[in-house]
Write a protein that binds this DNA or RNA. Structure first.
Lengths: 205, 205
DNA sequence: CCTACCGATCGGTAGG
DNA sequence: CCTACCGATCGGTAGG
């Protein structure tokens, strides 16, 4: 994510210097709102107040935009996860922190999350396999925390896969409703979801 | 849902009589796989082994297909919910049953769930508002169970909205991974999610 | 159910 | 950054 903007459409009208980053940012906003196939490149150009062909001075093509959004986001998810569990041995700490950073990212990078979840399947190979590999790596790492906790008897869960999906997906849903100007901060929402995760695996302090 | 098939593509090759129901079924499968905007009507026709214009002897248009999928599915969700809570007064029973039927539907009607969640925003007005009203009605009814349980002191939950979204969305996610030939039946998955819901709201028997 | 065909729009290139 | 333009594909109609 090299965009200078964390949220919102980049400066469109007036003396806004169009760059690769601003094209990617405008595309990200529109892909998140209307979906990849529902967004015409002419709409991206219009958001930047330029003509469609001018976009191609900054980017290679529409598919490239999607690929960079998806792969970079999934890399960031994996990096978050690795950093979150590093140095922690207690499954309770590991699950709480892994859930917290995952939930937090879905509150702070809503557009990226929406696009990844909706449009990853539209990627051509080999980007599709690359995306699926990254996603699977995260799921596997996340689930293993639950399995380890269950083996140690600290978690009581029937099916680690089921619990893992439930926790991951309730976190993903944050991207659908979270508002920066809402009653809860991203950190509060993330903390609460981390507690939900521990309840799902039946951890009782 | 008047389709004769609960899952899978309707009989395509050979002596398959194409009907309105079979067109809707083929479109449902393809919309679920590739998204509404990612599916060409020519692909729907190809799945039925007819030419594109022949589709229009059975349906009014592409938008109509999406509208009927979304509105009928949301109506069914509301009907499920109403039936599930009818006659139950204990918030524990109400939440367990409301979650169970919602989760169950996402396991048994995966394609519909995927399309509703991915493509509702692509509906033109007034169908868009109709869909949003139905979804909101369900969310409100669902959340009120949690609020009532919290008021009665049987649930301990910080934010009813947060808990409601988390429960609903972890159930929605079932549509993304559930397989009929997997290790768990739809009923088992639904029951487990109902228990997850009670844990999230901190109900302790 | 088909062939023939439509206007509109798509992503993208040429060539300044 | 633009105008001019491309071939491909879109949803859909006419008229059998």
């Amino acid at each position: 994510m090299s965009s200078a903007h964390a949220e919102g459409v980049s400066a469109p009208a007036g003396r806004g210097a169009v760059t690769g980053a601003s094209v990617r940012d405008a595309a990200l906003t529109l892909f998140a709102e209307r979906g990849y196939h529902g967004t015409a490149m002419s709409t991206v150009a219009a958001a930047l107040v330029i003509r469609t062909p001018s976009l191609y001075n900054h980017i290679r093509g529409k598919q490239d935009l999607l690929e960079s959004i998806v792969v970079e986001t999934l890399d960031a998810v994996l990096a978050d996860h690795t950093a979150a569990v590093a140095g922690r041995v207690d499954p309770v700490d590991r699950l709480r922190e892994a859930t917290r950073v995952y939930a937090l990212r879905h509150a702070t990078h809503r557009r990226e999350a929406l696009v990844v979840n909706r449009d990853t399947a539209s990627l051509p190979e080999p980007a599709l396999s690359a995306a699926r590999d990254r996603r699977r790596a995260h799921e596997t790492a996340f689930r293993s925390i639950i399995s380890e906790g269950a083996e140690q008897g600290v978690f009581a869960v029937g099916d680690a896969r089921l619990a893992s999906f439930a926790i991951l997906e309730m976190s993903v849903s944050i991207a659908r409703w979270f508002r920066e100007d809402g009653p809860l901060t991203a950190e509060q929402v993330a903390d609460e979801h981390a507690e939900f995760a521990l309840r799902i695996v039946r951890y009782r302090p």
